[in-house]
Structures are given as C-alpha cells and as structure tokens.
Amino acid sequence: MSRINDVGGMVGFPAIVEEPDEPTFHADWEAHVLALNAALIRRGVYNLDEFRDAIERMEPATYLASSYYEKWFTAITTLLVEKGVATPEELAVPRDASGA
C-alpha cells in the first residue's frame, strides 16, 4: 500500500522554496524533538525503521500539512502509545496546565 511519504515521481507539488540563511532549527521545540527521538532510539524504546514507519502511517492530509519536526513529534507520540510507554491521555497537556 503506497504511503504518502513515497512521493518520488509524483506531479503537482509546487516550486521548490529555498530559505536564505536558514537556521538549523526554527524554534526550540524542534531541537527538543530531534534530541528526544535520538534519546528514545538509543534507549531501545523503538528503532529508526519503526520511527520512519510511524511517520509514513500518518493520515496523508496531515502528513502534507505538517512541518518536518511536526511529523517527527507525531511519530514519537504514536510510538510511545504503541510501545505502552504512555497513554494518549498522559501525553496530552493537562487542561488546567494549558492556560486555556
């Protein structure tokens, strides 16, 4: 079943946009997502292939609408639930802490 990440040869994507003097991370949380993933892989919570698989299983419209590190964070939380590390409820920001 071809997945949304498998885009080689597809038509319809827009012109390539280069960002001059692009920073490595566009926000602190992106760096934290990268480090979190490295830490979990090193701990053996999941492996790199399982991580890629979790990105690929994203709902296609969400995949295309997500930034690079948003995809990573989605995959991390998916795997934390599937590996039994945490429940979706535990991963959600508590309402009283959200300031909403």
Binding site: A27, A39, L91
Partner: peptide, 26 residues
C-alpha cells in the same frame, strides 16, 4: 510542509512529553 513556525501549543506539548519521559526515567 514548508511551515516550520510552531505554535506555542506544540511547544507546550513537547515540554509536557519531555517531562513525562524524564519522570519515567526514559
């Protein structure tokens, strides 16, 4: 997916997950 500029919501959720994993020793 060219939009990197994370809202404060995802920033807050990343912090929350990080704290949870620290508490669990991961």
């Amino acid at each position: 997916s060219g939009d990197h500029h994370g809202s404060s919501a995802i920033s807050e959720q990343v912090r929350h997950v990080e704290a949870l994993l620290e508490a669990r020793g991961l």
